[in-house]
Amino acid sequence: MTTKDIVLIALFAALTAALGVIPQITLPMGVPITAQSMGVMLAGAFLGAKRGGLAIILFLALLAVGLPLLAGGRGGLGVFFGASGGFLIGFPVGAFMIGYLFDRYAGRPPLFPSILFMLLGGVGVVYLFGVPWLAVIAELSVWQALAASAAFLPGDVIKAVLASLILREVRKAIPNL
């Protein structure tokens, strides 16, 4: 791993934290979307499987040691035990998955597959961890937990589309990335 790799991992961990500064948008039914979880998709898409996954692990490690890095200033070990703990654990795996899929296309898939990959890793994989955790902690069945999480689904789909658009525009601005 080169110095440049270490720097990119750290910068995307920091970027994911910094995206928490953007005020959240609230969907009509009262569900908040934050720009932050887009950091997961972007890290995977820009850095590839290994570096993208490590960037998000680093973000989570700093969150765990007590830095208030989640949107709204939350942090500490408690957030991992909370209702969204499983989703957080799913983040680096999701970033890794997105990176893996993007690596198949040298980081530059066309727009439609790009959105699909963001959904698979950033939503599919993340929910795969988040929903069972919610079920365990709240003593719900997996289906009930899934139903409770479904409110976030529209926001997550929007984020996958936005992340794909961001990726395309940034690649245009810096072609030899």
Binding site: T3, L8, L11, F12, L15, F46, L162, I166, V170, L177
Partner: peptide, 25 residues
């Protein structure tokens, strides 16, 4: 309030910084 208009320039700047930072290290 346009997420694209906020994130694209921020990410471009982040990536451009990375070269200098790793040189500095």
């Amino acid at each position: 309030r346009n997420i694209l208009a906020l994130t694209i320039p921020a990410i471009v700047r982040t990536l451009k910084m990375s070269e200098d930072i790793s040189d500095a290290i």
